[in-house]
Amino acid sequence: MGNKGVVYVIDDEADVCEALKVLLHTAGLEGRTYASAEEFLSDVKLSRPICLLVDVRLPGMSGLELVHQLQAGPIRPVVVMITGHGDVPLAVKAMRAGALHFLEKPFEPAELLQTLEEALQRVSQMAVEEATYAAIEESYGSLTPREQEVMALLAEGMPTKLLATKLGISTRTAEHHRAAVLKKMGARTVSHLARMSTSLQARNPPTRF
């Protein structure tokens, strides 16, 4: 797989952690291991998407509880859950908690590495999405309050003349605002602007618009 990234392993079995670190190293990956969810949380602050390999049953906070907590945050990790006591109900709970995959011990090294490759590809995709969103948010912050109003109405599909009437401004002024909004947001078309608006609304309370 080459040197593609880091896998955070959370498992209370020291021998399992050590074996996984060796396996990951042979695949060109770095494994960082933790014996509990609490140890992981005290050491890692999520500021970007990461890949987690988590045992369902852990001392203290369980793997499922950890995933539920992390999924509630603004940066969600990509999770592969593992267990030595797997069953269908537990697998369903893991997937509902947000896990990408669920593997039962003992697993085949090739299967695990293939699963982690998929997870790391998803991490890369999410990182791109985060960067794109950050750029959109920065551009939105450069708009004046009036331009933000115009953007919201344009995103709803409102024609310029109707927009001008609604805001009590001339059509020429509305067209000026429209051009300024498209330029500042880096939007090619109004449809592109609408997609940006949808992205912002998905991350922020509706009252923003």
Rank of each mutant, 00 (worst) to 15 (best):
R188N: 12
S124L: 12
E130C: 07
T144P: 00
V190R: 14
L193R: 05
G98S: 01
Y140R: 09
L46D: 11
L70P: 07
G98V: 02
H192A: 12
P77C: 06
G63C: 04
P106W: 07
S199Y: 09
V6P: 00
L112Y: 10
F40H: 08
M196V: 02
G86Q: 10
F107V: 06
C17H: 04
A127I: 09
P74D: 14
T132L: 09
D55F: 01
E108F: 09
K45D: 11
P74A: 13
T165W: 08
F40M: 11
V22T: 12
K166Q: 12
V79A: 08
P59L: 08
V9C: 09
R32D: 08
V92A: 11
H176Q: 14
G157T: 00
L167Q: 04
G5V: 10
F209K: 10
E147A: 06
G2A: 10
H85Y: 14
T83W: 01
A99C: 08
L167N: 05
L53V: 04
R203T: 01
V123Q: 12
A127E: 15
F209V: 07
E13A: 09
E38R: 12
A110Q: 14
V181I: 05
T33I: 09
M126T: 03
Q148N: 05
A35I: 08
P159R: 10
Q148W: 04
M95K: 15
V79D: 02
L154G: 12
L66G: 07
I169Q: 09
L70E: 03
S197E: 12
L90E: 12
F107W: 13
P145V: 00
I136C: 03
L113I: 07
E65N: 10
T160F: 13
E117Y: 13
T33Y: 01
H176I: 11
S124Q: 15
F209H: 13
M61S: 02
E104H: 08
E149F: 03
P59V: 04
T144R: 02
V6F: 03
G186F: 03
R188T: 14
T189Q: 12
L90G: 13
H177Q: 13
T144C: 02
V181T: 07
E175C: 13
R48I: 06
E111N: 07
C17V: 05
S124K: 14
P205G: 06
A19E: 11
L64W: 02
T26I: 05
E118V: 15
P74T: 12
G60N: 02
Y133M: 06
Q148F: 05
V128E: 10
L116K: 07
D87R: 15
T160G: 08
L90I: 10
M158R: 12
